[in-house]
Design a protein around this nucleic acid. Sequence first.
RNA 1: UGGUGCGGGUGCAUGAUCGCUUCGGCGCAAGCCGGGGAGGAAAGUCCGGACUCCACAGGGCAGGAUGGUUCGUAACGCGAACUGAGGGAAACCUCAAGGAAAGUGCCACAGAAAAUAUACCGCCUCGGGUUUCUCGAGGUAAGGGUGAAAUGGUGAGGUAAGAGCUCACCGCUUUCCUGGUGACAGGAAAGGCAUGGUAAACCCCAUCCGGAGCAAGACCAAAUAGGGGAACAAUCUCGCGUUUCGGCGCGAAACGGGCGGCCCGUCCGUAGUUCCCGGGUAGGUUGCAGGAGGUGCCGGGUGACCGGCAUCCCAGAUAAAUGAUCAUGCCCCUCUUCUGGGGGACAGAAUCCGGCUUACAGCCCGCUCCAGUUA
RNA 2: GGGUCGUUAACUCAGUCGGUAGAGUAUCUGCCUUUUAAGCAGAGAGUCGCGCGUUCAAGUCGCGCACGACCCA
Length: 140
Amino acid sequence: MKPLALPKSLLIRQPWEYRKVYQEGKRLRSPRLTIIYLATGGTDSRLGISIHGIKTAVRRNRIKRIIREFFRLNRHFISPAADVVFAVRPGFEPDSLLEVQQLVERMLLGSKAGSGRKPPTAIVAPAPVPAAEALGVPEK
RNA sequence: UGGUGCGGGUGCAUGAUCGCUUCGGCGCAAGCCGGGGAGGAAAGUCCGGACUCCACAGGGCAGGAUGGUUCGUAACGCGAACUGAGGGAAACCUCAAGGAAAGUGCCACAGAAAAUAUACCGCCUCGGGUUUCUCGAGGUAAGGGUGAAAUGGUGAGGUAAGAGCUCACCGCUUUCCUGGUGACAGGAAAGGCAUGGUAAACCCCAUCCGGAGCAAGACCAAAUAGGGGAACAAUCUCGCGUUUCGGCGCGAAACGGGCGGCCCGUCCGUAGUUCCCGGGUAGGUUGCAGGAGGUGCCGGGUGACCGGCAUCCCAGAUAAAUGAUCAUGCCCCUCUUCUGGGGGACAGAAUCCGGCUUACAGCCCGCUCCAGUUA
RNA sequence: GGGUCGUUAACUCAGUCGGUAGAGUAUCUGCCUUUUAAGCAGAGAGUCGCGCGUUCAAGUCGCGCACGACCCA
């Protein structure tokens, strides 16, 4: 499989799979976005998206696509592999990849500094540099 | 030049890289190559159809919808042209626009009276009295006042005062003639006026409508539970008796259910193995992308639209693809002169079409009318 | 995909066949009481979700929107 691909098999699609993550997973919270993750022991991490309270289909789709793109570029920095669900509440309407990335970085740092508890998904480094290279963008 | 009105179009573009999805080809496979990939409203689900299943002799009732006429259409509550009414200086715009002399209901407050006709203040005549006033009988509907609305309007004659009582003009009704497929228009004669409003009140008239919907429907079909049939096997627990030691007989108890408000009581039932049949859930396949299809030309029609020829194939997902980043250009806004900063509407297909309604930044095109100026 | 219903005072709800929008709770003022609560008397307040229409007159009738709730498969 190509390194940056994200086929359907890496999406969480069944209701019972979501239920398992919600019941057994751990959470990173922020006011408008919650990330729930559960280490699976598989080879690849999988993505689930849950959006509540966004009225129009266009904005719902936009949020979904941005989060999927973010996950596609950063999938390999999640170790060990896990099922990750992004739960979006009303008010969180990012307009670019950068917004999501900054928010997720803050949430990860906050959880490390806060309780001293180490998250099992030790995300090594945020992704912009390798992602940019992969996109063929000259570094500034 | 400025503004008004009407109609139509467009809905950022190009390239590179990384992705998603579908179709075709190659490949044992991993995958690779090539083509396609949101809208004018995809939306609201307000109408009409196609399609599918169910129901159905015919007809009626009930219920619902529509409502000027004639066309168009598969059909419509849609569209076109025309007619009538209303608005505007005009271009043009708006109208659920059949029936109130078939019936029923309602018309608050005010007012004498709200549809039956009547008479508060008045006006006039006659009679009486306590005679600057008042009572009774009668005539009248012109004036006042009330109201959203008051029983044809204006003028003249007429009269005690008045009144379509009479006349002229206007309006209305009826009949006839002419033009038009028709709604209707124009004209003539007669009637002396009958017919207040409300049908988006009930209703009457005319026309139309069987019901449900792609989560329709068709096919394939796990696991678990259960249904029908056949074969084998055969009454499991406890106690007693018996035995040819395979069992058999009797009794008891338990569990589930029915009757019953509940207890008591009473009635019914109870296990295994294998095979076959049928229904059917999850899930999958199909329906599901060639169509009342698009584009161009020609012809018919005032027009909606119709016909002919040529040409094209143009989204098919299933928790649901159509995206991200960067660069260049285009168009706006703002601050400022620097290769500055910000922005590019409304909005996302879900069986498919025809409409309606609602949302929508800008930009472009055509026609029309009005005003000003110049020639 | 299809269907039903609702929206009226700060809150919970009435409002018939079109004719001056009401009730309870809450709030405020006064009385009573040592004070509070209770009680008594009084007051304030509404673009009837929004727009257009029918009508002399619309919360009510018709149409179009918006928001909310529920039902079926």
